[in-house]
Amino acid sequence: MMAARTLSVLPISTASSQFDCRKLCQSSMSFPLNLKQDVLVNSLLDIPLSLRSSHLRPLFRKPRAAVATVLFSLPTAKPERASTEKDSKWSARAIKSFAMAELEARKLKYPNTGTEALLMGILVEGTSQVAKFLRANGITLFKVREETVKLLGKSDMYFFSPEHPPLTEPAQRALDWAVDEKLKAGESGEITTTHLLLGIWSEKESAGHKIMAALGFDDEKAKELSKSMDKDVILSYR
């Protein structure tokens, strides 16, 4: 009898407990839904009352748009000449070539942008007449990179170049040579990638000059290029 009595009680208590549990779950589920969103967030995150949802930063942010550095001129070691450079600006191709040179220096993990990087930048830009001239004479970006590594070696794999690797002294002199040649000519127009390449060639002891010479560039080709320094500018207006 005791066993039967116990069995008859168990279903009743179990059913009532299930009913109470169901009511409790429904009430607990409906309670947060009636709260305001800011109160719910604050309670869940357990933050002080002095901080409200308006002060909370979103958990997921939209990625910021990349900011590109736009250059209107190239570095010079002769600041006193800045006023005269207003009449002679660098061409868009030359400026892009310089930006690509910095990128090539960073790819090779070099601490500076040298004449070899300026040469690679001209070839990476690729649309100028001097870049086409170099490729026609067998001087390609792949060959210049290969010669650069042979001459200067590989950088430490754990080294990270700065965002804008500073110019080496020969590279800076090459830029200034290009500007000087344009000013000496006394002609209007832009300083082109041809000026830039001949500036690299003028630095006899630089890595860029040595690489160009190793790949077959010589004074005769330099003279051929010097006759068409402003050709890039003429084509750019067509």
Rank of each mutant, 00 (worst) to 15 (best):
1 M>F: 12
3 A>T: 10
4 A>S: 14
4 A>L: 15
5 R>V: 12
7 L>A: 15
8 S>W: 09
9 V>T: 09
10 L>D: 02
11 P>E: 04
13 S>H: 10
13 S>E: 14
13 S>C: 13
14 T>I: 14
15 A>Y: 11
18 Q>G: 07
19 F>H: 10
19 F>N: 08
21 C>Y: 14
21 C>L: 15
23 K>E: 15
25 C>H: 13
27 S>K: 11
28 S>L: 15
29 M>N: 13
30 S>I: 11
30 S>L: 12
34 N>Y: 09
35 L>E: 10
38 D>S: 14
39 V>T: 10
41 V>L: 14
41 V>E: 12
41 V>K: 14
46 D>I: 10
50 S>H: 14
51 L>C: 12
52 R>S: 13
55 H>P: 01
56 L>R: 11
58 P>L: 07
65 A>H: 10
66 A>E: 08
70 V>M: 09
70 V>T: 11
70 V>R: 15
71 L>N: 08
71 L>E: 06
71 L>T: 04
72 F>C: 11
75 P>E: 04
75 P>D: 06
76 T>F: 06
78 K>Q: 13
81 R>A: 11
82 A>G: 02
83 S>W: 06
84 T>G: 03
85 E>Y: 15
86 K>S: 07
87 D>S: 14
89 K>W: 07
90 W>Q: 01
90 W>H: 05
93 R>M: 11
94 A>H: 00
97 S>F: 00
98 F>M: 01
99 A>E: 15
99 A>W: 02
102 E>D: 09
105 A>N: 05
105 A>L: 03
111 P>N: 04
111 P>E: 08
111 P>R: 07
115 T>K: 01
118 L>Y: 00
124 V>I: 08
125 E>S: 00
125 E>P: 00
131 A>E: 04
131 A>P: 08
134 L>I: 01
135 R>G: 07
135 R>Q: 12
135 R>L: 11
137 N>A: 03
138 G>Y: 05
138 G>T: 04
140 T>P: 03
140 T>V: 03
142 F>W: 03
144 V>D: 00
147 E>S: 07
150 K>C: 04
150 K>D: 05
152 L>P: 00
153 G>C: 00
154 K>M: 02
156 D>C: 02
157 M>V: 06
161 S>W: 04
162 P>E: 04
165 P>C: 05
167 L>N: 01
167 L>P: 01
168 T>N: 03
169 E>C: 01
172 Q>R: 09
177 W>V: 06
178 A>I: 02
180 D>S: 09
180 D>K: 10
180 D>I: 06
180 D>E: 15
182 K>A: 15
183 L>A: 08
184 K>P: 08
187 E>L: 13
187 E>G: 06
188 S>T: 14
190 E>V: 03
191 I>W: 01
191 I>M: 02
192 T>C: 06
193 T>S: 06
193 T>C: 09
195 H>M: 07
196 L>D: 00
200 I>Q: 04
201 W>L: 02
204 K>H: 10
205 E>K: 09
208 G>A: 07
210 K>C: 02
211 I>D: 01
213 A>W: 05
213 A>Q: 13
216 G>T: 03
216 G>K: 01
217 F>E: 05
218 D>R: 02
219 D>R: 11
221 K>I: 05
228 S>D: 09
229 M>I: 10
230 D>E: 14
231 K>G: 05
232 D>K: 01
233 V>Q: 07
234 I>V: 10
234 I>K: 12
235 L>A: 15
236 S>C: 05
237 Y>G: 08
